[in-house]
Write a protein that binds this DNA or RNA. Structure first.
Lengths: 331, 331
DNA sequence: TTGTACGCGTTATCAC
DNA sequence: GTGATAACGCGTACAA
């Protein structure tokens, strides 16, 4: 049996109220009694029961992330882990906890509702934002605290987002520095925010830097990417640089083109572990930082502080898939 | 304001006790009143407050995993995510929750203690088992429920482990089928359970199958692996097959040896995403299954059921890094 | 500055 | 089969 606040009170010859005050740093306790109580607390290594505290305070100090499962694909990449790592870096510093959960994306709103009603969680971090995301309408209407990773056109929530525009811009700029003139951009799915933002960065760089860019939609899919390249090859491949909206697409492109003896500078997006191994130049989104910032924002929000949305800068990681070509021109 | 059990009781013209009985499936409720109560519950979509329930029941329905951080390296691989996925597959089916946490490995036992005292968690899953693991002594002494991933010589806990012995055995057997006679085994760190188990599998296969195997310790480290190969090259490389205790080591070996024009069948361990991409034959531990089983075992344990330790079979995933060589002999 | 007593929302024990 | 009520461990309004 572990000690309760009552036991500590008795041992210190004070009331439970006083022990509670000491525990919660109230200033209405004399130095003397505070020390006396602290001594007993430390002697017995007393720690308050968080469940009882939560019931009383109506706050648990636990935040939640629900990964929505669509067709079994979830939690298999390093994006998730890195993100969690960032979130946990913040929370563990603050003595807060994180519940990680998964649920079918079909009745996801009902699930959020049930979790809220069960009262175990003080706030959510939302991943995989979609256009017209029902979760956001629901949480806003419930006035339940949440922070979103990514953003869309509707501006009715606090978000932490990766700077996709400048990330894509940097990629095209790097190709331009390698003297590329005709670049192929294989985008992600049309119509989703991430794709639109990266496309905007590509177009902006294309205009600024006088690089011609053709855009095709590879849907973040390796096979689709290969299909696209196949049909381009039929018409004749005359690009001198490729930028892909994901590393996996980029790697698929490299492998495929190699079979036809085509080697051009190529850049991916995400900096997955594979990219370091194979030497793929890529845009790193700093996911850990994004996770950290999201947790911080959510925590502030729950504690009534003012919170602003945030865009986390990406950085270009230059590797052999482009640097090999710089030698052609510069050495 | 969400409804409380009292509100439901009033609306259904029964006592809170009866509502509670309906909620918890007690058989001492007449069919009639049960239906009446259920109607109200569903009408208002009532859900009990889990915090209050936890306080009363002295159980939260939350389990915990604490990743211990040593030098910043944690939660960056797909092992962690896949494992979490397995755990969550089980827990979400049961309406249970998982707290994921990180903490410095230096004062890890004190941290477990504080989490236990705070009463938010019903049981732990332990990763990164070490020899003489202090956490196990501590949890055993506290009689706090836990399940361990991996095992060591001391047999004082319930574990779920990967079948490293037969995993390694399969790898050597596959090499033997490719007519390899002199195999190099680059092991993990000497003295840790995983390494010892895999080594046992290697030696057992070597005996059974009449394959000669030389063992060196690469410590799961890519650079160390390359160093080893360098010194072997100096003396003359005469192996016709390589088995590595990790995929990353195997890939480092392939890259290094290629520079010297050496290509032999090579097998890794873990089946990381990279391996599929580069076509590395490897042993897949079925981490998701391990996570699932661990969660299940822990849940049973917490609910007082008998629990036995478990060894989850691995399987060999054959890819080009070995299959390319089968053609030499068989076609 | 300190103590008493109530309430948080539920479950379990006891009467009826 | 059902209801009243104590108890879980803590925080805090109020009284002193």
């Amino acid at each position: 049996m572990s000690l309760k606040i009552k036991d500590i009170a008795e041992k210190a010859n004070v009331s439970v109220a006083t022990v509670s005050r000491v525990l919660n740093g109230s200033d209405k306790v004399s130095q003397e009694t505070r020390e006396k109580v602290m001594e007993v607390i430390e002697k017995y290594n007393y720690q308050p029961d968080k469940i009882a505290t939560s019931l009383r305070r109506k706050k648990t100090g636990i935040y939640g992330i629900i990964f929505s499962v669509k067709g079994g694909k979830v939690l298999e990449d390093t994006y998730s882990t890195k993100f969690l790592k960032g979130v946990l870096n913040y929370l563990s510093k603050k003595g807060l906890k994180l519940i990680v959960d998964i649920h079918e994306s079909s009745d996801i709103v009902e699930y959020y509702d049930s979790v809220i009603q069960s009262k175990i969680i003080d706030g959510f971090i939302l991943l995989d934002l979609r256009k017209n995301d029902e979760r956001i309408k629901f949480l806003n209407q419930k006035k339940f605290p949440f922070v979103v990773i990514g953003r869309n056109d509707e501006n009715d929530f606090v978000y932490v987002d990766s700077d996709n525009v400048s990330g894509a811009y940097m990629a095209i700029k790097h190709l331009e520095e390698l003297r590329c003139k005709r670049v192929l951009y294989i985008s992600g799915n049309e119509g989703i925010p991430v794709s639109e933002q990266r496309l905007r960065g590509v177009e902006s760089a294309s205009n600024d830097l006088n690089v011609s860019v053709d855009v095709v939609y590879g849907d973040f899919d390796e096979e689709k990417t290969v299909e696209i390249l196949k049909s381009i090859l039929k018409k004749g491949f005359d690009y001198d640089g490729i930028f892909c909206a994901s590393d996996t697409m980029a790697y698929a492109a490299i492998k495929f083109l190699k079979r036809f003896g085509i080697e051009v500078p190529i850049i991916g997006y995400d900096n997955i572990p594979l990219s370091e191994v194979v030497g793929l130049t890529t845009v790193d989104q700093n996911i850990i930082k994004i996770g950290y910032s999201a947790a911080q924002a959510l925590d502030k929000m729950v504690n009534g502080e003012e919170v602003v949305s945030l865009v986390v800068p990406s950085k270009l990681v230059k590797r052999q898939s482009t640097l090999n070509f710089s030698k052609r021109y510069f050495k």
